[in-house]
């Protein structure tokens, strides 16, 4: 009888543990929303090293970047997941926009080419994530078609979503506007750059993991 109970509990709790170990959480959003800044903040907090470079020039992340086994221990809870940081999704890429940031024409053209491929790669990864953190710039209009398309695709694939309004350190940030735009989802306002409100973010991340 004792053996039976032991096997039963091992199967139940072992199964739960295994599921948590293999979580794949994707970071999606438009360019320059701060996906990599947030991914860096998390990786630095819990693994000690960053995942990728950040820049004011849009489309700095042009390849999907993966950090295996990020373990978060928070308030007695533990979660291990694969962090997938994706290039910003856009419907248009114009190399001339990069010239304004001082890039040479050849470099700007190469960046645009890589950015288009990055967007295609990011969309393909939608099939390989268990949950998604949608990162939105809280100073921008949240009703953009890219945000709506990303969230629509996640809903269609039944992938749990956490919406993050980043850049709350800036005066123009308006998290309430994001909550109004996406009332069906939990929205957390943070500043990845300054580490503001990260406690609330980690709590929301655990709640997101429970929905998988």
């Amino acid at each position: 009888m004792f053996k039976l109970l032991k096997r039963f509990s091992a199967r139940i709790f072992g199964g739960l543990f295994k599921r948590r170990e293999n979580l794949r959480i994707g970071f999606y959003g438009p360019p320059n929303a701060g996906k990599t800044s947030l991914a860096n903040r998390i990786c630095k907090d819990w693994t000690g090293e960053e995942i990728g470079a950040v820049s004011a020039v849009p489309h700095e992340t042009r390849n999907v970047q993966v950090k295996e086994k990020v373990e978060i221990k928070y308030k007695g809870k533990v979660m291990t997941f694969k962090l997938i940081d994706t290039p910003g999704i856009a419907t248009k890429i114009d190399y001339e926009n990069f010239l304004r940031f001082g890039l040479k024409k050849k470099v700007a053209k190469q960046r645009a080419k890589e950015a288009t491929q990055g967007i295609i790669e990011a969309i393909k990864w939608l099939d390989d994530v268990d949950a998604v953190v949608v990162v939105i710039d809280a100073t921008e209009n949240p009703y953009s078609q890219v945000n709506i398309t990303i969230i629509g695709n996640l809903v269609a694939r039944k992938i749990p979503i956490l919406v993050v309004g980043n850049k709350i350190d800036l005066k123009k940030a308006d998290v309430k506007r994001i909550e109004g735009a996406f009332p069906e989802y939990e929205v957390v306002g943070i500043s990845a750059k300054d580490g503001l409100n990260m406690d609330e973010f980690y709590e929301a991340l655990f709640r997101l993991a429970r929905k998988i």
């Binding site: 890429i93 645009a112 288009t116 491929q117 967007i119 398309t149 629509g152 695709n153 809903v155 269609a156």
Partner: peptide, 18 residues
């Protein structure tokens, strides 16, 4: 368009930009 069509439209658009 359905969400998957919007995603496909963006994918194909990016391939065209290239």
């Amino acid at each position: 368009l359905r969400p998957e069509e919007e995603a496909r439209l963006i994918e194909d658009t990016m391939a065209m930009v290239d």
